[in-house]
Design a protein around this nucleic acid. Structure first.
Lengths: 247, 247
DNA sequence: ACAGGAACTTGATCTCGATCAATGCGGGAC
DNA sequence: GTCCCGCATTGATCGAGATCAAGTTCCTGT
């Protein structure tokens, strides 16, 4: 059976980040609590536009979003998937280099940019936490470049499902392990998936079907994907079959 | 004529980063000066291996290096090109997620990791400078994902030449503007180029020839590339033809 | 329940880049 | 000089994924 390593996000700290919020100083928390405002967006809403000034930074509370770029001729590439606890905006960056768009209804916990930047300047451990988050994103972006540049369509799809399962396993509302497998709720349409994988919608759909016919996944209504054997899917994604945990 | 925007690296500060070193405090510089040691590596040397502990962080003084990952079956993808003034290693990261390999003879300015991390902890503006560098790399990695995922072989090559020209323009020993064009010294073999572009060596060579036949570049001995019209090459890379500066 | 539309699947064909296979070139050792 | 050997180019063919074109399923609103 697959081992899950769920690390729950801290609900008290607005910069929710895995379990490190245990380090949060009560005084800092109080400052952040005073600063924050919640805002909800509808499906497809633009949370940020490439090149536009950001007046707020935010942490995703519920829902998912993509970061993407669209070329003049309409070709689109998604460069990152944002899940609950992910942070939008970074100190010293007044604007986003990419479009950020809600995949479904999204609730953000927002902080006025200048106040937040001041807080970061005065609070080294928050700065260091943001650094860690950025470095994680950097590694993830480079990992994804390997997938985009060198993997086949089937491997891309398997790699995405594996990575999404692992990321959800670290937060709440993620995949439900049980019955010798894992159930995953896909937050993306086939088109959004294709844009993330650097494929067309048709190829994405075909490879999805191929994985289903090979018994690696089961496709259920409402974009639910059942993974009977997580290790087998990892192997399909080109990972050495050490049957490691979902992390 | 193409406008160049050269921003020279600061030679005094060991964390050379564009022109921000002007901010370096003399005391910090003294500490760094005491810490640093120079080391030279031969072509092909491994400056860091994926998953191996780093005992030093370093700044590239001369030469170039790649960050790459090689899959079990030999497929390789380069995820970043490191040029003089680029930094290897980040506070809080004891190991590199990728292999770092010298493309030619490389000289590094090295800092013992723990001492450097202590300095960073005690010096917010160095931490903030490292944050800026990391965010630049993050944007670059995501930009490159768009190239890998959605561009044709010809566009990939043009985009790479454009990006390399711009990066060299910010440092020393870069492209020589003049005669209505720019001369670029390619630090990579066709194979290394192919690994960066997510192509095969043959396709890379063919597209190089195609760009030459179309008058967009001229190929000279010793991996020298002459770009007669930088704006035209930018257009080929899918950029809007605003004839912007090399930045 | 039904209608409409968006999301998804499947099929037929085409094309760009991969693969297989020579051939050309250029620089260093002697 | 000329013999190498690694790097680069070019050619012929193949195949994974794109493209064009129907269908089918699923969700939503009434």
């Amino acid at each position: 059976m697959v081992r899950l390593s769920p690390v729950k996000a801290c609900n008290d700290c607005p910069i929710r980040y895995r379990a490190v919020c245990a380090e949060c100083d009560p005084d800092e928390l109080a400052v952040l609590e005073q600063m924050k405002t919640y805002q909800t967006f509808e499906t497809g809403a633009h949370l940020a536009a490439a090149g536009e000034d950001l007046d707020h930074f935010s942490s995703i509370v519920t829902g998912c979003a993509t970061m993407s770029r669209t070329l003049e001729d309409g070709r689109r590439q998604t460069v990152g998937l944002l899940l609950p606890s992910d942070f939008i905006g970074r100190p010293g960056r007044g604007q986003s280099a990419f479009d950020v768009q809600a995949l479904g209804p999204v609730t953000l916990c927002r902080f006025e940019r200048h106040s937040f930047e001041r807080l970061v300047r005065e609070t080294p451990h928050i700065a260091s936490r943001l650094m860690t988050m950025s470095l994680d994103e950097l590694d993830a972006a480079r990992d994804w470049a390997v997938v985009l540049g060198r993997m086949t369509a089937r491997e891309k799809l398997a790699a995405f499902l594996v990575s999404l399962t692992r990321r959800f396993a670290q937060g709440a509302g993620g995949p439900r392990p049980g019955g010798g497998g894992v159930t995953l709720q896909l937050p993306l349409t086939r088109e959004e998936l294709a844009d993330h994988l650097g494929l067309t919608i048709e190829t994405t759909s075909r490879q999805m079907t191929a994985l289903r016919k090979d018994g690696l996944i089961d496709l259920r209504p409402a974009r639910e994907v059942f993974i009977p054997d997580f290790g087998a899917l990892c192997a399909e994604a080109g990972e050495d079959g050490d049957g490691g945990p979902i992390v």
